[in-house]
């Protein structure tokens, strides 16, 4: 049974049965796990994070403070 479940749930990652997806989303949300919690940022997304968090930009822009 255990191996059958592993194969079925792996197949679910491909097939995306809506009822199963709903139950999975509910469980993973409840425990804070799953793909939506582990996505890796793309290179484009990373540049946006860098820009947003880079306070050196503010320090160098003297006109901003005057």
């Amino acid at each position: 049974m255990s191996k059958n479940l592993k194969h079925l749930f792996d197949f679910q990652k491909f097939e995306g049965n809506s009822r199963l997806s709903s139950m999975i989303a509910e469980t993973e949300s409840r425990y804070g796990v799953g793909m939506s919690h582990n996505l890796e940022l793309s290179d484009d997304e990373l540049t946006l994070v860098s820009a947003a968090g880079n306070t050196d930009i503010m320090k160098d822009d003297k006109d901003f403070w005057n």
Partner: peptide
């Protein structure tokens, strides 16, 4: 149900 999903899917 949660246990099965966390173990076999997640």
């Amino acid at each position: 149900r949660d246990l099965i999903i966390l173990h076999y899917y997640t």
